[in-house]
Each structure stands twice: as structure tokens, then as C-alpha cells.
Design a protein around this nucleic acid. Structure first.
Lengths: 196, 196, 196, 196
DNA sequence: AATGAATGAGGATTCATTCAT
DNA sequence: GATGAATGAATCCTCATTCAT
């Protein structure tokens, strides 16, 4: 199972700086998968292993768990921002994208509930910023007189829906998310990622 | 081979069997507080310490984490059942009690989301039963034609509200819970424990 | 699973001194079974439980594990002594009884190997005495010129045979024991307990 | 929630990967000694301490107790195989090497009795394979008509001899082993390790 | 810049032993 | 004289984090 290096064993190629970016990406991808499967408390070593890099590399790129979580979420949040930036984007459309991420990513759901008890403080700080970016994106598409127009209702609704997104399969989670929006009387566009 | 403390070593008071019930209660109280502060994954040793008992006592009373969580929740669920059993109880009234527990107890919120990723399976099993008891209590007071009358809407709404109950202080959490029910257009009675 | 006494719960009858002897016997019986199933390192609590007595009773009767092991062996050794004491007893006959105990009782085998590494010192001391009693019984029936007549050969042969008695079923163990005696060229009588 | 040592705390030297092979060897050596002194149930932490490494290193190299036991025995078994592979090797010669290992190593004796009650199943599985390797080595040198020629007699004899190898000092153990072989009427070569 | 081994603290769990009742 | 709860030390095992190479 474990192989022990004889002293003369060659070490893996050092691909130089080019590898850095590649590794970073691999780590984020791996982290997304591992967080999804094992929750935000999954061992960091599992992420490094799945990314095919050493533990040191993980620490080089992400000094703590929070930084890694943030990086995973960055992509989610960016897609929401981009969906909101499109000409003629509607709240429903943006919520559809948001819902897609909620359904896909345990980490994203955690993001929407980062102030809850037990949250790691390192994560909380990062999460606040990301959460505000989501809020700005949504609010920019909020029509006058929308039922979520009042001060905090918008993000409260998001928290409610993401809070209800539980279930072992993505189908079940999507079903629950849509039912939740329906209960709130809020229209949601197609549940899909934003892809250009 | 295994030798424990030499017999003449000072050992703390042993209050005898009389302490059993007291200890059990202390453990549940401590667990409620610790789970609230640290989440359902908090170290069991912290609970034993806070209860002022040895680790062994905790294991004697609760063979695993799930049993302890269950015990903590049992009281919450029982109050909801009792509130629902009162003559003339209304859904709003029962929801008020439920909301009180959600606001007070991180564990209770966890209960409503026990199927989420990362949940320990031991807990999940217990949680399901408790969750069904809550559902039965609520459904028994659901008037015909209520907007949560459809099959899964009732517990979905509960999940949404409890999912939205975050925040560092109980005031903030209560504020959010009430706002969430309002968003759902569901009337809630006074947020209070059920006390006879 | 665990029942916690309310203060007014009645406690089990105290049968007075008569119970003492009964408890002692129950403990020895339980210990024999537990040691057989789980080895000489089995938890003492398991023995008390199986005997249907509290842990304290176990400690009252047997201050340490060694005392309990000794008590279990006492019966084995006594039977061997009695078998040897019978008029006209032969070495083969006594060895048959000894072999029966080896086949039945893990503890008895341990007895014959009590000086091995890892042995609990408390047990070792008691075991030596018992082991000598076995030796005396056998030697008393050793015919002149027997092939085990030399100083230490007798108990060495016993150690060899009992050392070879392994296997999950008593049939397998008996088979091996007899094969071992055969290899040693020593005649053995019927493998059976001594019962008066 | 889980926070380990603060970063500025002094930590012992980390000799880097170079130490891996050295550590593994040190662990096996330590395990041999500790198992010899304390039996196969000795605490793993004692082994790590004696090897001068952290507990984690032990687990990295050997995921469970069985793996460590196997590693310890591997060397013993290999020597026996090599002794048997030498041109012109005799059964007596190979038995001499086997006897040496029995005298030296409590673990090796355990190997020959791995099916006894209380054996950890993880160990049993490994032990079976190793035991078969020993049998093959011996059987390959078994002359026609040897008194241990019958099906199971060979390993039974080995079990008998190793079962008889008890005693606090290596001299005493060697004395008993030789006496046991003599009782069986089996010739044994010099009791020594196989060293090339 | 990457590797992955090492450290060791932390948390879970089990039992031997004591002792109030 | 019995009960069985309590204690807490010891062991197992896991990971976050550092660091030699």
C-alpha cells in the first residue's frame, strides 16, 4: 500500500511555475468534489490526494481551510455575478443559476449560512464578502414592488431555500429547491449553471 | 499488563448511585449547551467536562453520540407534542413552540436537516423518528385548506424556516425566524416554550 | 438499554449470606465461559454481567484477575488430582482427564504456559502452584522406565500437547491433542472429565 | 473547531523523507522487542515511543496492528525460507533456524498458534499465509519416510515445540525447545539465525 | 516549487477499580 | 453483603500543520 522511497528513487518531475496554476485549479476542483461528498469538514489530505498533489502544495496555495472554501465558492459566486450582468437578465434567471449552485454544491449552501453556530471563524469572514456579492447581484435585478423588495427579505429567502436543499441526490435536492421557491411565491428561471 | 491507578491515589468524590439521575440530567443540559455553541460535532469530552462527570459516565448513559443527541432533542420534541395535544391548540400556536425551540437549540435545527451531507448516520436514524413525531404533531392541527396543506409542504416550510434561523444572538435568530414565517405567509403564535 | 433508577425504585433482594456462596459459584462458572470465549484478557465486567451480579461482588470474592483465574482452574486441577487418586489409576487415564480439560478450557491451557511473555504477573504466581499440583498428580502415576520419566520431560510433554491444542471447535482441539500425544509416543486414556 | 498546536510552538526535528526508511526499520525493530516483552497485544504507542517516532508515523507505515505483526514476522519467515533454499539444506538445519526464531521471538510463536481463541482476526489472516510459507519450506526438505511425514504431523510438531517454548530467558527457552524436539525424536541442527 | 514524511495534539472509547447507598 | 454508578487512565486512531529534501 505504502511505498517507501529508496534514497536513489527519482522524484516526480518538477514542472516549474507552469504547474503552479494547474495545481491550484486541480485543488479547487478536488475540493469542490470532496466538500460535496464529505461536507466542509472533510480532511484536507483527502483533497490534496484527489488533486494528485502533495499536502505542501495545498498549503502553499491556501493557507487555511477558509481560503480553500472561498476559492471553491469564488467560481459559484462569479457565475451568479455574470448571470446578473447579462443584458436583460431577470431576477428569476439569476435565481435559477443560484439555485443550480445550491443544488450542486454543499459548500455553496454553507456559504449562505456562514453565520451559524459552529462555523469556523476563518470561513465566516470570507463568506461574508462572498455573500454580499451575491446579494448585490440579485438586488440589481430586483424589480420595484417585488415581494422580496423589503430590506432583508431577499437574502432571507435565499437562506430559506438553500436551507431546505437537503437530500442525497441532486434530483431530490432540485425538487426541494423548486418547491421551496414555489412556497415563497417567487418565480425561478431554469436551474442551470451560467456558461457564457 | 494494563495497570490503572494505584489504589492509594486520591480519587474524587463518588456520590454513589444517587448521582445517576442527576448526572444524566446534567449531561443532557451540558450537551444542549455544547451542541448549541459548537454544533452537533462538538467533542463529547467537552460535554462530560461541562456536566462535571467523567467520560465513562457519558458513555454509560449514552452509548453513542446519536443517543445523546436524541436525548437532547427528546425534550424539544416532547414539548411540541404536548403543545399540539392541548385542547383547542392551533397550528399557529404549535409553530410558535416549534419556533422557540429552533431559536434556542442548534441541535433542534440540525434535527430538521438531518439528511444533509456529512450527517452521521447514527444520528440520522434517530433524527428521522423524531422528525416524524414533529410532523404528526403539526399535521394534526393543520386546518383544511391551509396553504401548507399539500403533501410535503408542511415540513418543507419547517425546514426553510429553521434553515434560515442563523445568527449569533437569540434575538437575531428569533427575528429571522419570524421574518421567514411572514415571508411564507404563515401565521405563527407567540414564540415560547411549552410549559404545562 | 440502560435503566436509571428513580430514587424510590426498590433494589434487588438481599438474600443474605446464603447468596454469597451462590454468587461465588456463579462467578466461577461465568468466568470459565467468558475466559473460554474471549481469552484470559476478557473484561471482568463481562464476567460479572454473565454471572448476574454486580461488579462489586466480583471484587469481594476475587480481589484480582489472578484470583478468578485460579478459581476457575482450581476445579480443573482438582479433577486431575482426584483422577490420580483413584485406586489403580494409570498415567494414561490421568492424562485423558488432563487432556479433556485442555480441550475444554482456554484457561487451563494458559495455566500450562503461565511463564510465557506477557503473562500477567498476578496470574503467574497462582498458576505456578496449580501447575505443581498437576505435576505431582501425574508423577505419582508415572511407571518406572516410562519415556517421560526424566526430570522435566513430563511437564514438558504436557506443555507441548496443550500448546498444540488450538482450533475453533472442541472436536478439532481434541483431534489435535490426541495427535500430539501420539507423536510423543505416549498412551492416553479416554478424553473425559473426572466425575466421581 | 479543531485547532492544533499554535504555529510558533517549538516542534522536534523533522528529518524529512530521508528518515522514512530508517523509521520503518526502527519501527519493526521496536515492534519485535516490544512484542517479545509484552506479547502481541502490547500498546502500539509503546512501539512508536521505543522507535523514537510519533504515533502517526507508525500508522503511516502500518495501517493496523496486523500489518506491523506481519512485518515483524516477515523477516523470520524469510530466513526460514532462505535456509530451506540453500543447496543441500536438511530438515534438521531448517528446523534449527526455525527454532532460533521461536526462541527469540514471541511474535513468531504466536504465528504458529494464530488460530487460538482471542487472536485478533486481522492478525489471523496474515498469519495463515505466513504459516503456510513456513510449512512449504519445511516440507520441501522432508525426507521420505521421516517420522513427521504424515499429513499434518509436521506442523503439529512445530506447534508442539513452539508451544513449549516458554521461559523468561532465551537460554531457558532454547533448552526447552531442544528438549521438546528430543522428546519428539526429531533431529535438529544448530539453533541459529540464517545469515546468508 | 513540489513532495510527502513526521509530529503530536485531540478526540473516541474501553475497562479496572472504588465506593455511596 | 450486594448493587451498579462513577472515575479516569490508557489506548487507539485521525488529521492539521510543518519542513527536509
Amino acid at each position: 500500500m505504502i511505498q517507501h522511497s529508496s534514497p536513489d528513487e527519482r522524484r516526480p518531475a518538477n514542472d516549474g511555475p507552469k504547474a503552479a496554476a494547474r495545481n491550484r485549479t486541480a485543488l479547487v476542483v478536488a475540493a469542490r468534489e470532496v466538500f460535496s461528498a464529505g461536507g466542509l469538514d472533510a480532511p484536507l489530505s483527502a483533497i490534496a490526494r484527489r488533486a494528485g498533489v502533495g499536502q505542501g502544495v495545498l498549503y502553499r496555495h491556501f493557507p487555511d481551510r477558509g481560503a480553500l472554501v472561498t476559492a471553491v465558492l469564488e467560481e459559484n459566486v462569479r457565475q451568479i455575478e455574470q448571470a446578473a450582468a447579462v443584458d436583460g437578465a431577470t431576477l428569476a434567471g439569476v435565481l435559477g443559476v443560484l439555485t443550480w449552485h445550491a443544488v450542486e454544491s454543499a459548500a455553496f449552501i454553507g456559504l449562505m449560512h456562514a453565520d451559524e453556530a459552529g462555523g469556523r471563524s476563518g470561513i465566516r469572514a470570507h463568506a461574508s464578502m462572498l455573500s454580499e456579492r451575491v446579494e448585490r447581484s440579485l438586488r440589481g435585478r430586483l424589480p420595484d414592488g417585488h415581494r422580496l423588495g423589503a430590506a432583508d427579505d431577499l437574502m432571507l429567502a435565499v437562506a430559506m431555500v438553500t436551507g431546505a436543499v437537503t437530500g442525497p441526490t441532486r434530483e431530490e435536492r432540485e425538487r426541494r429547491a423548486l418547491a421551496a421557491w414555489r412556497l415563497l411565491g417567487v418565480e425561478v428561471g431554469p436551474v442551470r449553471p451560467y456558461e457564457g
